[in-house]
Design a protein around this nucleic acid. Sequence first.
DNA 1: AACAATAACTTGACGCCGTAAAGATTATCC
DNA 2: GGATAATCTTTACGGCGTCAAGTTATTGTT
Lengths: 191, 191
Amino acid sequence: MADGYHHGNLRQALIDAGIKLINRDGEENLSLRRAAAACGVSHAAPYAHFKDKEELINAIKESVTEKFMKELEDAAEGCESADDALIYMGSAYITFFSKHPDYFVFLFGKQKITAHTQMNKENKNDYPPFLLIRQMYKKHLEEKNIELSEEEQEIGLIKVWSMIHGMASIACMKGVKTSFNWKDPDLRLLL
Amino acid sequence: MADGYHHGNLRQALIDAGIKLINRDGEENLSLRRAAAACGVSHAAPYAHFKDKEELINAIKESVTEKFMKELEDAAEGCESADDALIYMGSAYITFFSKHPDYFVFLFGKQKITAHTQMNKENKNDYPPFLLIRQMYKKHLEEKNIELSEEEQEIGLIKVWSMIHGMASIACMKGVKTSFNWKDPDLRLLL
DNA sequence: AACAATAACTTGACGCCGTAAAGATTATCC
DNA sequence: GGATAATCTTTACGGCGTCAAGTTATTGTT
């Protein structure tokens, strides 16, 4: 990989540049040409690594999802009980999107969430953050010896996740003011 | 308003065409030029009625929000108790976005929600659907003689709204399957 | 009725965008 | 070392938002 013509690691550079551009200018201002320019490369160079713009965007989503997952895992680490972990994960979930409001619509808006995630066999609830919350929720039921039917479990899980997810969504809406500091890392209003 | 040169009611026609285009092709395929073409008018004609694309989009958002509000009000109508009304409004909230998944990111994604809504004096919680839920929630507290501090009320309200809103958001995510039929008009899992 | 002023619309142009095709340059492999 | 493949550049196309200038219809004034 000599200097000049060949970049060396353009694929990853484009992903990193894309994240920076989204953080600075918002998703709608991310273009293939800008990302290419940020990497010091011609406007058509990305097509050697990505089929189209959507493929670059999905790669960026994967990368952002990894960061998101890491914060959730870090929040759960060191908790004594599963319901403690649930609360801290929920707080981290909300805090993450409070700090990066653009990421919410970027990750969950537009097309299928599965486009940038691996599918499991049943194609069900396969989004990694949801899997994390699901397994922590089940662990919590075990710890507290709460016995629920399959459907009751599913309902309880959906309630927990939707409340957390909904708060994250609301925290991202500029112009809707609440009396909370969503960036507080310990939001004990949950559950 | 003779035939030919002058359209007569281009402003509203553009809004209607915009809604149709979003319903058929999704938000990302809505362009000023397409909307203009759908109205049989030149590509720059919209600029007589809208400052830029954003202004047209905000007008469309207002129109969609009105439809949304109407479904919420219809759901609450005829309910005997306020908490019954809350449940039916919540169901309608989720059902609305289940039927039109594109509307969720269209209404709540991107820029400020206040751009297409009137501001109240305090610039607080002024999004009409939230106001509706807020007042119904307070009515419910009164009916049941539940006395809460201002902050406790705010927390309770946020919990209810975020759970409904979160379920709506989840229902819109293609690729994340749950065992619920979100289009069921009576989702009694709530609250 | 005539005419000025204004609103509504068209035409043409600009730069940015995504993408495809063809050519240039470098890396890889037998 | 020479073929092959991967990577990158250049050129080109149509669609986009937007602006400027010109055209046509409507409205208001006398």
